[in-house]
Every structure is written in structure tokens, then in C-alpha cells.
């Protein structure tokens, strides 16, 4: 893989992912962006691991806003200079996605982050404990959602410290 050029790497990925692709774009020369259905996520990720195309750098979760009504998950795979992004869109109201832990065990941190920051239910992920947010953070309040209200995030301890009991 190391000796392959950027073009070859991106071409390999594009060809391989084509069967699941709803839309494929090249937003920047070193990037490939493939929109896939949430139901195809497991197959696509398993395939990327199987053909040993790079490594999963991280998962970016984005709230597209209340009006749009969707959340976007970007699975970034990196190989040398090339970055392939699998883009999955799921409804805000029913944010559900299967875990890819089975294929990439080191994904646990990224999935835990999505659970607590964006309120996404991830099926079959081994650990759903809080990773970054405090233990007394209120349930059902997800800071990276666009309609997040800082006042809802007042933990009992904060309230006491600010004098609003």
C-alpha cells in the first residue's frame, strides 16, 4: 500500500465502495467522499477493513440542525495522503446506528463520544459509559446538538456554585 500513489489509492476505494455509494464526490484532491445508506454501513466498513484500505482516523458527528432534521456521521479512513469519508445520514429523532466494533475494535472511544455528545444510540457497542462528560451531567442533554441549551446542562454541582439552587 505504501508505494501506491494518491490517485491509485482513491481510485481503489472509489471502485470498491461504488456498490454502496448513493453519491460520490471528490471535494479536495486528496479526498473521496462517499454517501452511503445507514443500512450499508457495516458492509462498507467490513469491506474497507478486509481490503486493508488505511485505518479509521476518527468519526465526526455533525448535527445538521432542527430544520434539516438529520445527523451526519463521517467515518474518516486515512491511508498516506488519501482520506476517504463514508458519510451516513440518520434522522435526529431516531438516531440509531450499528457499531463497527466488530471490525475495528479501537473504535470504542469514538462511538462513546457520539453517544454522549450527539445522543446517538449505537447498537452492539461494548461500552456505553460516559467518556468525556461529567458523571452528574443530566440525561438526554447532548452538547453537540445545535439546539443545545447551556441552561439545561447545569449539573447539580454547577448550580450550587453559581448560587441558583
Amino acid at each position: 500500500m505504501q508505494t501506491e500513489t494518491l490517485e491509485v489509492k482513491l481510485k481503489t476505494a472509489a471502485k470498491f465502495l461504488d456498490r454502496w455509494a448513493v453519491e460520490t464526490t471528490t471535494p479536495e484532491p486528496e479526498r473521496l467522499d462517499v454517501v452511503i445508506d445507514a443500512t450499508d454501513l457495516l458492509a462498507a466498513v467490513a469491506g474497507m477493513v478486509k481490503i486493508q484500505w488505511g485505518y479509521l482516523a476518527t468519526i465526526t458527528g455533525i448535527d445538521l440542525g432542527v430544520e434539516d432534521g438529520r445527523l451526519e456521521l463521517l467515518y474518516h479512513f486515512c491511508s498516506g495522503p488519501a482520506v476517504v469519508t463514508l458519510r451516513v445520514r440518520i434522522p435526529r429523532g431516531n438516531a440509531f446506528i450499528p457499531s463497527i466494533y466488530e471490525f475495528i475494535p479501537s473504535v470504542s472511544f469514538y462511538e462513546r463520544e457520539l453517544i454522549e455528545m450527539l445522543g446517538i444510540t449505537i447498537a452492539n457497542t461494548p461500552n456505553t459509559d460516559r467518556l468525556f462528560l461529567p458523571d452528574d451531567w443530566p440525561e438526554g442533554v447532548y452538547p453537540l446538538r445545535k439546539d443545545f441549551d447551556i441552561n439545561e446542562a447545569q449539573t447539580p454541582r454547577n448550580r450550587k456554585a453559581n448560587g441558583n439552587t
Binding site: 479536495e28 479526498r31 482516523a57 465526526t60 474518516h76 486515512c78 469519508t85
Partner: peptide, 20 residues
């Protein structure tokens, strides 16, 4: 408007930024 990915080599390894 747009989005981009920037990666650089920090002392501890790859630092990954996604900016929209």
C-alpha cells in the same frame, strides 16, 4: 461555506481536524 480536513504531525502523531 464548505468543509475541509486537515491533518498534521504533532509530536505525538497525527492530529486530525475537520472544519465546516
Amino acid at each position: 461555506a464548505g468543509e475541509t480536513i486537515m491533518r498534521i504531525e504533532a509530536p505525538r502523531g497525527e492530529l486530525f481536524y475537520y472544519v465546516k
